[in-house]
């Protein structure tokens, strides 16, 4: 028996993960309001009653942020090479194939160019549904090339993060993508090209500890979970429940790491206004 025992009674149940289930009607996990999918879409996937922000992916964010039809994707088909031939309870190569089939994406980020009210930007958006939005070599390389695009075309960079962190199945190479992307951002900064980082639910681990925190301006969506260590790990470390609102977008703004919490409906306008100041 161990000397130190953590009391279970300090822990409450973990909050449930929420994703968009199938069907035409959606229930808001916050206020239980029943919303039709069409209604939800026209409300930019936020609850009509309590403005809860549903978790969405690149397809939706392209609609939220960019002018219609302006997105031109680059490096679309880049995919993981499984450098370690990694296998746990399942082969990583199979995991990747399954994710590709299920999500119709090639990896956890889409990158390209597009316009915001006519202003051209480099745009990257992560997809949490692709292996937890984790960053392996493909995500790192696509971001690096997107930054190069910004440098070459002298256009601002906007990145939307939604990720559990670096991808375990590519080992240290995933870790090195944090270095790769941050180093490239240093070059972008040296050239005076603006970078706006948008953090959405959830942004944790190696993503927060690299490009997501390095924007000239960091914006977060309301109530998004943002942090370095995941709440469960911290809970285990300190041995009690976490304070209410810990690691939310609002908490990070309060502690000085997020410039502004911006609701999804205001996102495009806020970006446009900011870019006018920065460019």
């Amino acid at each position: 028996m161990s000397w130190f025992k953590r009391s279970k009674k300090n822990f409450s149940d973990d909050t449930q993960k929420m994703d968009l289930p199938d069907g035409m009607w959606m229930k808001c996990p916050e206020c239980d309001e029943i919303i039709h999918k069409k209604q939800l879409e026209s409300n930019l996937w936020t609850c009509v009653k309590c403005s809860y922000h549903f978790r969405i992916g690149s397809e939706e964010y392209i609609k939220v942020i960019l002018d219609e039809g302006s997105f031109k994707e680059i490096n679309k088909k880049m995919r993981s090479a499984d450098p370690l031939e990694f296998s746990d309870t399942k082969k990583y190569s199979l995991r990747v194939n399954d994710a590709i089939k299920k999500t119709e994406l090639y990896d956890a980020i889409r990158t390209g160019t597009g316009t915001i009210n006519g202003k051209e930007i480099s745009f990257g958006c992560m997809d949490f549904k692709f292996i937890g939005g984790s960053m392996g070599s493909v995500v790192g390389e696509k971001i690096a090339r997107l930054i190069d695009k910004s440098i070459k075309s002298k256009i601002p960079l906007v990145l939307i993060s939604s990720s559990g962190g670096a991808r375990m199945m590519e080992g240290v190479l995933s870790l090195m993508q944090m270095a790769k992307t941050s180093a490239r951002l240093a070059k972008l900064a040296d050239l005076g090209i603006p970078y706006i980082s948008i953090l959405t639910d959830p942004t944790t681990g190696g993503i927060t500890a690299s490009y997501a925190m390095l924007g000239d301006v960091n914006i977060a969506e309301p109530k998004a979970l943002i942090g370095f260590a995941g709440p469960r790990v911290i809970k285990q470390t300190i041995g009690k429940d976490l304070p209410k609102g810990f690691q939310t977008a609002e908490f990070l703004q309060e502690h000085g790491f997020i410039d502004r919490v911006v609701s999804r409906k205001e996102l495009k306008n806020t970006l446009f206004t900011l870019l006018e100041f920065l460019n």
């Binding site: 500890a209 490009y211 997501a212 911290i234 300190i238 304070p243 810990f246 502690h255 000085g256």
Partner: peptide
């Protein structure tokens, strides 16, 4: 991975 580490921006410090 502590409470105060998060409050003081562990992620930002590493990223920077």
């Amino acid at each position: 991975p502590g409470l105060e580490a998060e409050e003081r921006g562990q992620a930002e410090a590493i990223a920077r």
